[in-house]
Simulated assay, not measured.
Amino acid sequence: MIQHFQYKNMYENKQLPGWTFSFYFSGMKYEGNYHKNGNIEWTGNIPPANKEEDLKKQLHELMLYHVYE
């Protein structure tokens, strides 16, 4: 389960899409960029291969809720 999820606009002009995010999962901090097309780019630790797809799904849901509500 994702904990302490945070996001912010990547650009000062908030009309431009793109966000940075961070969260904790299993005691490890993960960071990345969420692009307007839904692409996720990890900028820090990369999740284990067997958990990455599940984390991406959770991130998409969180971003849809917070950004595109």
Rank of each mutant, 00 (worst) to 15 (best):
K56S: 09
F25A: 09
S26T: 04
E69A: 15
N39W: 11
H4W: 00
M1K: 08
T20E: 06
P47L: 05
K36D: 05
I2K: 07
I40F: 09
Q3M: 15
P17V: 13
I46E: 10
Y24V: 07
K56W: 06
Y68D: 05
E12D: 04
Y24A: 10
E31V: 04
N13R: 10
E12K: 14
N45Y: 11
K51I: 00
E69T: 09
F25E: 03
I40Q: 02
Y65V: 09
K51H: 05
Y68C: 08
G44V: 04
Y7D: 00
H35M: 14
G27N: 07
W19E: 00
N13T: 00
M63Q: 04
V67W: 04
I40A: 04
Q6K: 11
K56Y: 08
N13L: 11
E53T: 15
N37C: 01
E52R: 13
K36G: 13
E41T: 03
K36Y: 08
M1R: 05
P17A: 15
L59R: 04
Y34F: 15
P17N: 14
F21H: 03
F25L: 06
W42P: 03
E31Q: 09
M28A: 10
Q15R: 14
L59V: 03
P17K: 15
Y11S: 08
N37I: 00
M10F: 06
F25T: 01
E52G: 03
N9T: 01
E31Y: 01
K56P: 03
K36T: 02
E69S: 12
K57I: 05
H60D: 08
N13W: 02
K29Q: 08
P48G: 02
T43E: 07
H4V: 00
H60R: 10
I46N: 10
Y11R: 07
S26P: 00
F5E: 02
L64D: 02
Y68F: 15
S22K: 12
L55R: 05
A49S: 15
N37G: 05
G18P: 01
E61S: 14
N13E: 03
Y11L: 07
N37S: 10
G18Y: 02
Y34E: 01
F21R: 03
G32T: 01
N50H: 14
L59P: 02
N13H: 06
H35F: 15
D54H: 09
T43W: 11
N13M: 05
Y24T: 11
N45R: 14
W19Y: 13
V67Y: 03
G18K: 08
E31A: 06
K14T: 13
M28I: 09
G32F: 02
E53Y: 12
L62H: 01
Y30D: 00
K29C: 08
F21D: 00
E52F: 06
H60N: 08
T20Y: 07
P47N: 01
H60W: 07
F23Q: 03
E12V: 06
Y24K: 13
H66Q: 07
K51E: 01
T43L: 13
W19S: 05
L16S: 09
Y24R: 11
I46L: 15
E52I: 10
T20R: 11
N45K: 12
E12F: 14
W19C: 04
P17E: 12
G32S: 05
S22H: 11
F23S: 05
G27K: 08
D54L: 12
M63I: 03
K29L: 09
G38F: 13
P48S: 07
S22A: 12
Q15W: 10
M10K: 13
T43S: 14
H4P: 00
E41Y: 04
M1Q: 04
G44L: 09
K56M: 12
